[in-house]
Computed example of a mutant assay.
Amino acid sequence: MNKKSYHFYAMATILCWSISYVLSRYIMDEFSAYSISFLRYIVASIALIALAPIIKLKKIEKQDLGWILLTGTIGFFLYMIAFNKGLETVNATTGSVIIAMVPMISSILSNFIYQEKLTKPQWFASSLSFVGVLLITLLPGGFTINYGLIWFFGAAFCMSFYNLLSRKLVKKYQAIQVTTFSIFAGTILLSIFSVSSFRQVQQASGLAIFCIILMGVFSSAVAYVCWAKAFERAENVASVSNYMYLTPFFTSILGIIIIDEVPGWSTIIGGILVLTGLMLFNSKRFKTARN
């Protein structure tokens, strides 16, 4: 199997996720954070059910149902609630910056759980990208501290654990199978918000509903299938999760286009460092360097 093939799937995921920050902020006036979470994943579940004959899902073994429930709880139920609650008071670009901390968290967790060692140059590259994240966050024009940041930090930890759990499961099942059943599990849990969600749909504009559908199909179903596929093909967790450093860059561009959210110089300078670190981390020279 060509290990380099994970790059396409990782990039597709980041693009799909980047648009979700902006669209979620855009429809916050018409839907609550809980409703956006549920509606995104009920749409995603319907999309995956429609694709079931093509996907040819296999039965999950009884001993792994608990793991599926856990990935659904962490990666879709808890993460989405924290993500959308954070967006209530934090702008799209800032939210994507905080979630960009996931690669660093994933690498540290992977070091302890899977004993996946990074080379010293890779640690340097990760640190360079992280400095870029700090510049976007802390320089003038960065975020204003509020409770939304706590929600986003919680979301970052949820995503990190989801990354590691998914990698464990895709060693036994197809990536699309793991993602699909995890989404179903998360959607079932999110259904506790179904009544209020459908009530808000009746009062929402057609454009807001279209945004929900767009996020459900692409930012949820397609994105997570690609994300799981990337982990299935990658050499280690960090190789894929470091792609999340690109999210602030794409979110900033989409924010300008869709909701007139113009990034400051801190975002531009920090973004350059983030991209530089990512390219260095994934370079063959940094991967094969001796510690």
Results as ranks from 00 to 15, higher is better:
F112V: 15
V97A: 01
N91H: 11
A100G: 13
F83T: 10
L78Q: 03
S126Y: 12
N91F: 09
L109T: 07
P121D: 02
V97F: 09
S126K: 14
I105A: 11
S127G: 12
P121W: 02
F83Q: 07
F130M: 06
G148D: 12
T144N: 13
I105Q: 11
L87Y: 09
M104G: 14
M80L: 12
V90A: 03
N91K: 09
L135S: 03
I108T: 01
L109K: 02
I99F: 09
M101V: 05
M80Y: 15
T94K: 03
G95H: 02
S127K: 08
N146V: 11
E116L: 01
M104S: 15
I99C: 02
T119K: 00
S96Q: 00
V90K: 02
T94F: 10
I74C: 10
G142H: 01
N146K: 11
I105T: 07
Y79N: 03
S110I: 13
V97C: 01
M80D: 14
I136S: 11
L134G: 04
A92S: 13
F76W: 06
T137W: 08
G132N: 06
G132T: 07
I113V: 13
F143H: 07
F76S: 10
S127W: 00
T89W: 01
T93G: 15
Q122T: 09
S126R: 10
G142M: 05
S107G: 12
V131E: 12
S127H: 01
E116I: 06
W123N: 13
S127N: 11
S126I: 14
S126G: 10
A100N: 12
P121L: 01
M104A: 15
S96A: 09
G75R: 06
L134P: 03
T93W: 02
L87M: 05
L118E: 08
V90I: 11
Q122C: 11
N111V: 08
L128A: 05
T144W: 09
M104R: 13
Q122K: 10
